[in-house]
């Protein structure tokens, strides 16, 4: 296995407060790393830092096997991210799904092919011409996922994408996403505060508490052998 992303000695401060301090964290190619923790644990800060949307004060983040010199724009064009809110533009579903490809200057025929495939795969092809403003929460998040997958990213970052959805919708979407990730083998970092989601989707799990990674391991191992009392307490609170 090769580390697609490796974080060492990372420090992020916001308004003079340390919000993230990670000694080491790596994500192997093809794995789904579920990052769990309570609200305020620094998960979203980690997400933004990994997406190069937030600057870190100290530390090294090696992307794509050590190619650190890659420009921010080039880096962002090799990843894709899905946020908690779908944040679709006031345009049709098809246009929304294609926007990342348009930013990359992908030829129209290729963009159309990929958009059609991913809208179909995520079950929203019938909505292609509909205004994104007229979608339900679940449909919007499916379009948001399609918009990410059409980019065929080397790294997919998901920040609590199911939080705003009702329980049945969330369950169906989680099931579909698991299948898609299995098919594509896309390396994924999945931020969530929901341990069930983490267990279902993650091949490994990182527990974050107060800005630090306390434990990384296979979900079953983490649940069976919490690294310390704080992790045990967090897992106990949730399960």
């Amino acid at each position: 296995m090769t580390a697609l992303i490796e974080v060492r000695d990372l420090l992020v401060r916001r308004e003079k407060q340390t919000v993230l301090e990670i000694a080491h964290l790596s994500v192997e190619a093809g794995e789904v790393l579920a990052v769990v923790g309570p609200n305020g644990a620094g998960k979203s800060t980690l997400f933004l830092t990994l997406a190069r949307l937030l600057k870190h004060e100290r530390g090294v983040i090696r992307f794509f096997n050590g190619h650190e010199s890659i420009s921010t724009l080039e880096y962002r064009r090799r990843i894709a991210l899905v946020l908690q809110e779908p944040l679709l533009l006031d345009a049709s579903v098809r246009e929304n799904a294609a926007i990342g490809l348009r930013f990359r200057g992908t030829p129209k025929a290729e963009a159309d092919r990929r958009v059609a495939h991913w809208l179909e795969r995520l079950g929203v092809a019938h909505l292609a011409e509909r205004s994104a403003r007229k979608l339900s929460g679940g449909e919007s998040q499916r379009v948001s996922l399609a918009r990410a997958f059409v980019l065929e990213p080397e790294l997919l970052l998901l920040d609590e994408p199911f939080t705003a959805l009702d329980s049945p919708t969330r369950a169906r979407l989680l099931e579909d996403l698991k299948a898609v990730l299995g098919e594509t083998g896309t390396t994924t970092i999945f931020i969530t505060h929901d341990l069930r989601e983490a267990e279902k989707l993650g091949t490994r799990m990182a527990v974050m508490l107060k800005g630090r990674v306390h434990q990384v391991g296979k979900p079953r191992e983490v649940f069976a052998h919490p690294a310390d009392s704080q992790v045990a307490e967090f897992l106990g609170m949730q399960m």
């Binding site: 724009l73 962002r76 894709a80 980019l151």
Partner: peptide
């Protein structure tokens, strides 16, 4: 957060501003 989303989708600064104008 729309700005973050646009950057995250690979928009350059100009593409981000044009998308916001649209």
């Amino acid at each position: 957060r729309l700005r973050l989303q646009l950057y995250g989708l690979g928009a350059s600064r100009v593409q981000m501003v044009l998308s916001l104008w649209r």
